[in-house]
Amino acid sequence: MRDLIAALNETSWSIALRESLYVWPILEATHVLTIMLFAGTIMMVDLRLLSIGFRDIPVSEMTRRILPWTVAGFIVLAATGLLLLYAKPLHYYHNVFFRLKLLLLCAALANIIYFHRKAEADMAAWASGKAPFAARASAVISLCAWVSVIIAGRMIAYDWYDCSKLNPDGALSAFADCPRSSEAVAEAAARE
């Protein structure tokens, strides 16, 4: 896996992307700004499910009219996110916060599947009133998960837990698949 990522890291398009003057900032800015569309709209649907806001609007109307915009936001986020990943694959591969973000993203997506498969099943019965426990729980998980994804995403920029700063035999180092101490020594020796 790491060899594949390292090879990807050396492809000419990857190098061109991370060294570009404008393309990388444009992708990064688009990724961050689309949070307004994606997280902003999903928050509104969650607030409705929790009956905190939009109480006079049926849940079915919120999901039908608002979620297409959320999906559009997600497509932009995924596309720009994948390109940003392609620009610095090795950097993100070893980044603790990037790995944490992926785990949180999986939890958030699992929650979406749960909502549409189970919680939403009998929506016609309660759409105009208070959502049942399963749907409200799903809304709370959604809010917590996306807030955590955004926080983890922001923290990717900081280097506190870069491989070079971790104890090579520690748990965090293993979590980030950093080179083990002996391997690192061998690699450094090979480079000499």
Binding site: M36, A39, M43, I66
Partner: peptide, 30 residues
């Protein structure tokens, strides 16, 4: 920085819900 981003998300949602409606998109029944 993280709080700034979360505030941006909520602000964007609050602005867009109304602006999309004014553009004839989103919650057009309201």
């Amino acid at each position: 920085g993280a709080a700034h981003l979360l505030a941006l998300a909520a602000l964007g949602g609050a602005v867009l819900i109304v602006d999309l409606r004014l553009l004839g998109l989103g919650l057009i029944g309201r």
